[in-house]
């Protein structure tokens, strides 16, 4: 977990949420932009998860390991679930459906950082 990556995740997640809301406002369905942003978000989250796993295996101690892993798994799941769910939505609300998990990830990642920095190693 690094602050730089957390900021990057937040920026991409916010962009995805905005793109989703914009497509709803424009009465459009989601397009390539949304899928690219969601893919980028998932990739950043995976990098974050791998880095965290390496540090944890290397002896980084967390006061709340279970909570941290729960949040991490949830954050990894959300963009994928959001894309699958919004792809089956045929109205303009598909974008908002995708914006919900994106906004959630942008909040969760900071809570993850908080949990991470409470640790030591």
């Amino acid at each position: 977990m690094t602050t730089a990556l957390v900021v990057a995740v937040t920026v991409v997640a916010a962009a995805l949420a905005l793109a989703g809301i914009a497509s709803t406002v424009a009465r459009r369905r989601i397009g390539l932009l949304h899928l690219v942003l969601a893919g980028l978000l998932e990739a950043l989250l995976l990098v974050q998860a791998v880095l965290a796993a390496v540090r944890l295996a290397g002896g980084w101690e967390l006061p709340e390991t279970a909570t941290f892993l729960g949040y991490l798994a949830g954050a990894l799941l959300l963009p994928v679930a959001g894309v699958l769910f919004s792809r089956t939505e045929t109205t303009r609300w598909a974008g908002t459906v995708l914006a919900v998990p994106a906004a959630t990830v942008s909040v969760m990642i900071w809570r993850l950082l908080q949990l991470w920095e409470a640790g030591s190693g």
Partner: peptide, 17 residues
């Protein structure tokens, strides 16, 4: 469908959390 699905998405996030 539609707006209802947005509601389902928010509920799903809370179910997960």
């Amino acid at each position: 469908e539609g707006l209802g699905r947005v509601l389902v998405a928010v509920y799903a996030v809370f179910a997960l959390a």
